[in-house]
């Protein structure tokens, strides 16, 4: 692996007693796309804000291309491009005027500035509309200008903070392609998202962040493998009639599982190939070490107890499952 362009060491941010970021550490290599995956409020934007010098951390250090961000602040900032989550553009100015302004802020002047702006407008395919006010653009077009503004000064590392929020599928794909194309030129990227499919598709490595802490960090496939064999969801029906509770002992209250369903859950949970079995909303959820073995064992038990299977879903192991496994929460809760 090449030299790291970003080194984050034990980064913390406290507001009074509240710890928004609780000591995160990682490195990003030259040419790497590094994902920060976590639900809203996990601390992703706070972390990015400290890494880009928006505000100082309570403690911890950030080095960009070997430069200490707290000491060589302006030099380090010149190596960084930020594409904030918001459309950080001036709506009444045109795309060209916006880019010219942000270029000047990064020290570009004269012919070089004009050439870079024209080149970026070509890249984001907005040359034809470049003199229209940004407020007249579609959401996707605005996103593209937003990204162009972060790339204008050719940063070594680009921070993309949830760049696809509120974007239609077509524009989202265009953004993915832009990120991949940019990465092929050697630009390192830190990409935050709460969409696990984006992290899986784009990122070489992913840090899963929750409540201000990194709870897992690996390649997407490595993280998924750590989950094991995957998740099976099964709908069960033991034939018990719903009705007034207590009559003949066979009837049950609506929503309450029958006696044989509970037996299935208990026996499946005892299988060696199964990590955990639980019943939620009428569905048996099996987290398996080995999904195939667990499925066979579950079928045998339901046959023995004469319980009918109404639904059967075998969930592909993915980062959503990893997050669920690690935190007990869904990414988009």
């Amino acid at each position: 692996m090449s030299e790291p362009v970003l080194v984050v060491q034990d980064l913390k941010k406290k507001y009074g007693d509240f710890e928004a970021v609780r000591g995160i550490s990682f490195r990003v290599s030259q040419g790497e796309i590094f994902g920060l995956l976590g639900p809203n409020g996990a601390g992703k934007t706070q972390s990015i804000s400290m890494m880009t010098g928006l505000f100082p951390p309570t403690s911890g250090r950030v080095h960009i291309c070997g430069l200490d961000l707290s000491r060589d602040t302006n030099a380090a900032k010149r190596k960084v491009g930020l594409v904030p989550q918001e459309l950080a553009l001036y709506p009444t100015l045109s795309a060209r005027e916006n880019l010219m302004f942000f270029g000047r802020i990064y020290g570009l002047r004269g012919k070089e500035l004009r050439q870079r702006v024209s080149a970026m407008l070509e890249v984001v395919q907005l040359t034809d509309r470049s003199d229209d006010a940004v407020e007249k653009y579609s959401g996707g077009m605005k996103r593209r200008v937003n990204i162009a503004a972060g790339l204008l000064h050719e940063p070594e590392i680009l921070f993309l903070d949830e760049p696809t929020v509120g974007v239609d599928p077509q524009s989202r794909n265009a953004i993915f392609e832009s990120v991949e194309a940019l990465n092929r030129t050697g630009t390192s990227i830190v990409y935050t998202t709460h969409y696990m499919e984006e992290a899986e598709r784009l990122c070489h490595r992913v840090a899963i962040i929750d409540e201000g802490k990194i709870i897992a960090l690996d390649t997407p496939s490595g993280l998924i493998q750590s989950l094991g064999g995957g998740v099976i969801q099964v709908g069960l029906d033991d034939g018990a009639v719903q009705g007034p509770l207590g009559e003949f002992g066979a009837e049950r209250e609506p929503g309450v599982p029958g006696k044989r369903v509970l037996q299935v859950v208990e026996q499946v949970g005892g299988l060696a190939s199964v990590k955990a079995a639980s019943l939620r909303d009428g569905l048996l959820k099996i987290e398996a070490h080995r999904a195939q073995e667990a499925l066979m064992g579950m079928l045998e038990i339901t046959n023995q107890l004469d319980v009918r299977i109404t639904v059967l879903q075998i969930l592909e192991p993915n980062l959503e499952g990893v997050f669920l496994h690690l935190t007990g929460k869904k990414l988009r809760e």
Partner: peptide
Amino acid sequence: KVGSFRRLMAAPL
């Protein structure tokens, strides 16, 4: 409000 303040704060400024 438009978020440009964050972008400016991240710039060498």
